[in-house]
Design a protein around this nucleic acid. Structure first.
Lengths: 224, 224
DNA sequence: GGGGAAGTGTGTCATAAGTCACATAACTTT
DNA sequence: AAAGTTATGTGACTTATGACACACTTCCCC
C-alpha cells in the first residue's frame, strides 16, 4: 500500500474526516509528506505556529506541557494511527502544548498551506469540514458541561476507559498525571483507585494501572 | 439605510462574522429575508431542523427550554442586534431549545440553503468561517475547563457581568434561573447574593438584581 | 379579598473533595 | 550499597456546596 493510501486510512478513522468521500479523502491524503524523528526529538513546542497536521505512522509521540513548577506533565500519548493537530492546521493558531517523540518515529505531515489550498479548490469539502466543526462545538458543550459536573469516580472511570482504548488493559500513567487529566487531587485519585482495587476492578503498580474488569468500569463511566 | 445594510451591521458585530471583509459581508447580508412575530408566537421548538440563522431587528426573543418537571427555564434573551442560530445554520442539526417572541418582533432570517450556496461560491469565506469555528472550539475548551473549576462566586460574578453587558445594571432574572445558568443550587446563589448585598455590590428585588458596583464584581469575576 | 403559586431568605445537616502531613515503597544515581 | 528522588498509600482536618425544611413575601387570578 502506498504511503498516501495508508494516510487516507488514518484520516478516515478520525471523526473529523470520516464523512468525506473516498475520492475527496484520497486527494487530500495525496498532499502529505513524511517526517522522521529520533527518540526524544522535539516535534514542536508550545507557542510554535500551528502549520501542520500530523499522523503517527510508527513510533510514539507524547503531547506534554511544562507546568509552572518546571515539572512536565504528559497530556496524551499518540500511537500509530493517531492524528493530532487537526484544529491547528485549520486555524493556524499557536500550539498550546509541546510534542516530543517517545521513541524513533515516522509521521505523516499535512501542511496547512496545502490543506487550505485544497479547501479553496474544493468548497464542498470545506462545507463538510464546517459541519464537522459545528458537531464538535455541540459535542464539546454538551460533554463539558455534563462531564465536569459528574462526581470524581465517573470522570476517572471515563478517562481510564479512554486510555484503555489506546493502550489496552495495561495503562502506563502515574496517579499524579491521572489527577491532572480528570481535574482532581492526586490523593483523591489514589483513594478511588484503592477502592476499585478492593473490588477487583483493577490492580495498581508503580506508574501503571492494570484494568481487570472493564465491564464494571464502563458501567461506572456511564454513571450506573 | 436598507434592510440588507442594517443586517450587515448586525452580522459585523457578531464574533463569527467580524473578520469578514465589508464586501463579502454585504453580499452575505443581501441573502436575508425578514419575518414578523406576534407576542408569544413560537419561532421554533426543540427538535426542529436548524434551517436558518436569525437576527433581531426589533422586539425580543426568549430562548427557553422545558424542564422535565414541566416548568420552563429561560436560557437567554435576545434583543435588537442580537444574532442566534449561527451554529445551526452551518450544520443543520436540530434545535436544542425553543424560541418564542417575548413581544411583537421583527427578525432577519438567513436561510441555511442560501448560506451554504454562498459558501460554495466563495470558498475564501468558507475558510474564514472554518478559522472562526476553530477559535470557538479552542475558546470553549479553555473556558469550560477553567470555568467549571472556579468556585461559585466567580462563576456567578461572571454570569452577572455577562448579563449586565446585555441589560445594563438592572438584570431581570430570578435566582432560580441564575442557579441554572451557573450550575448551582438556588439556595447557594441566594446566599452569595446576600453576601454581596451586605458589601453594597448589588441590591435585590423580586425577580431583579441591581448591580451597584461593577468594579468589584468584575474583580471577583477575574478571580481577584 | 381570598387562596394559591412563585420567588425569596435562612437554618441545619450531610457529603464530596481538597489540603496537609507523613509513612512507605520503588526506582536512580553515584 | 548508600543516598536521593519520585511515586504511592493513608489519616486527620477543613471547606464548599448540595439537600432539606420551613417561614415569609409578593404577585396573580377567580
Amino acid at each position: 500500500m502506498s504511503k498516501q493510501a495508508e494516510f487516507a486510512v488514518i484520516l478516515k478513522m478520525n471523526a473529523m474526516f470520516a464523512d468525506l468521500g473516498t475520492d475527496e479523502l484520497q486527494r487530500l491524503a495525496n498532499l502529505c509528506h513524511t517526517q522522521h524523528l529520533g527518540n526524544g526529538e522535539v516535534l514542536f513546542q508550545k507557542g510554535d505556529a500551528g502549520d501542520a497536521l500530523f499522523g503517527v505512522r510508527r513510533g510514539q509521540v507524547r503531547i506534554e506541557t511544562g507546568a509552572s513548577d518546571g515539572s512536565r506533565l504528559t497530556l496524551n500519548f499518540m500511537g500509530p494511527g493517531d492524528l493530532f493537530g487537526e484544529v491547528a492546521v485549520l486555524d493556524g493558531q499557536n500550539r498550546t502544548a509541546d510534542a516530543t517523540a517517545g521513541e524513533a518515529s515516522e509521521l505523516f505531515v499535512l501542511r496547512r498551506e496545502d490543506f487550505l489550498a485544497f479547501l479553496e479548490r474544493e468548497p464542498k469539502v470545506a462545507i463538510k469540514i464546517i459541519a464537522l466543526l459545528c458537531q464538535r462545538i455541540r459535542w464539546q458543550s454538551e460533554r463539558m458541561e455534563e462531564s465536569m459536573l459528574q462526581p470524581l469516580p465517573v470522570r476517572l472511570a471515563r478517562r481510564l476507559c479512554a486510555l484503555a482504548a489506546d493502550f489496552g488493559s495495561e495503562v502506563h500513567i502515574s496517579q499524579e498525571q491521572l489527577g491532572v487529566f480528570v481535574g482532581a487531587a492526586r490523593e483523591s485519585v489514589n483513594r478511588q483507585l484503592q477502592a476499585w482495587r478492593k473490588e477487583a476492578i483493577l490492580d495498581l503498580q508503580r506508574g501503571r494501572i492494570l484494568l481487570r474488569n472493564m465491564t464494571k468500569l464502563t458501567a461506572i463511566a456511564r454513571n450506573e
